[in-house]
């Protein structure tokens, strides 16, 4: 009985491990695939935004990936890749090839939040946004009149140091000693 449970758990863990190891991802900016997690590592290949990769383990700011097209493995900076499938319509922007890959995802979440017009077209968003969330421009900032009621509301939301620590504890976040950069 115990043995069976243990082997089930082991199988589950293995499954999770496989799923994690094989997480699909894609490159979001021009990057260099290196043979070591270090800038002194040799560049094996240059990767352009939209390249499909498998995300493998992470080490510090580095992420090991496997390029889907040729199964080559190597290291890139972690922020140069994202988890998920390559967005179906990679917008190519002649001015800037790095942009575009993620802009689909970003505008997806923005339109889902009603922050953009349904078309996602920003030029019409001012008029087509259905909920009355306003923008915040330089002109609006300079013309603003102080709102004391809103300030009082802000003060009421303030959390005590104890509440902050409880918030951390609930998520098992632990203080660490880190030197300034």
């Amino acid at each position: 009985m115990l043995k069976r449970q243990t082997s089930t758990v082991a199988a589950l863990l293995l499954l999770i491990g496989v799923v994690l190891a094989a997480a699909p991802g894609f490159v979001v900016r021009n990057s260099e695939l290196r043979n070591q997690p270090s800038f002194s590592g040799q560049v094996a290949q240059r990767l352009s935004p939209g390249t499909a990769v498998k995300l493998l383990e992470r080490r510090g700011g580095w992420r090991r990936v496997e390029v889907k097209a040729n199964s080559r493995r190597g290291w890139v900076r972690n922020y140069q890749v994202r988890a998920g499938q390559v967005p179906s319509s990679v917008v190519s922007d002649s001015r800037d090839e790095n942009r575009g890959v993620l802009s689909d995802l970003a505008s997806l979440s923005r339109s889902a939040s009603g922050l953009l017009g349904s078309s996602g077209n920003t030029s019409t968003s001012q008029t087509t946004a259905t909920i009355g969330i306003r923008g915040l421009s330089a002109e609006e900032l300079k013309a603003a009149r102080p709102d004391q009621q809103q300030l009082n509301q802000l003060k009421r939301y303030g959390a005590t140091p104890e509440a902050g620590r409880a918030f951390a504890k609930a998520a098992n976040l632990k203080r660490r000693k880190v030197n300034a950069l």
Binding site: L102, A106, G135
Partner: peptide
Amino acid sequence: LNVLTTIDSLDPHDPDLA
């Protein structure tokens, strides 16, 4: 760094980012 990557991917002509 991830946040900055996301921001970098946004349309620079979007008035909401101006």
